[in-house]
C-alpha cells in the first residue's frame, strides 16, 4: 500500500512538472493563470498523498485552506484581466 502511495505521488509530481512547463512557456497571460489554477489544485492532491504517506491528519486543514486561497487568487486574476482593477472603488455602474 505504501508503494502504491509513493508511485501515485511521483505520478502527480510529474503532472505538476508539466503544469510548470505551461506556466513558464505559456504564450498569453490567461494561459499562465490557467496553469496556476491547475497547479493549486494539483498541490492539494500532493498534500493529501503526503499526509497519507506520513500518516498524519494534521495536514488536512492545509488542503481546505489551499483550495480556498487558490480560488480567491484565480478570481482576482480573472477580474484584473477583465476590468483592469480588482476592487471597484465607486459604484458608478
Amino acid at each position: 500500500m505504501m508503494t502504491f502511495y509513493w508511485v501515485s505521488l511521483i505520478l502527480v509530481s510529474l503532472g505538476f512538472t508539466g503544469l510548470l512547463f505551461r506556466l513558464v512557456k505559456g504564450p498569453t497571460i490567461a494561459d499562465r493563470v490557467v496553469a496556476l489554477d491547475a497547479i493549486g489544485i494539483s498541490l492539494v492532491s500532493i498534500i493529501a498523498l503526503l499526509s497519507l504517506i506520513i500518516e498524519t491528519e494534521f495536514f488536512l486543514e492545509v488542503i481546505l485552506l489551499l483550495s480556498i486561497l487558490s480560488f480567491i487568487g484565480t478570481i482576482a486574476f480573472a477580474k484584473f484581466l477583465e476590468r483592469g482593477e480588482i476592487f471597484d472603488r465607486n459604484n458608478h455602474n
Binding site: 505520478l11 502527480v12 510529474l14 503532472g15 503544469l19 505551461r22 490557467v34 496553469a35 491547475a38 494539483s42
Partner: peptide
C-alpha cells in the same frame, strides 16, 4: 491529474 497536465 496526468491527463490534465497532458491537456495543458
Amino acid at each position: 491529474s496526468l491527463v490534465t497536465a497532458l491537456g495543458l
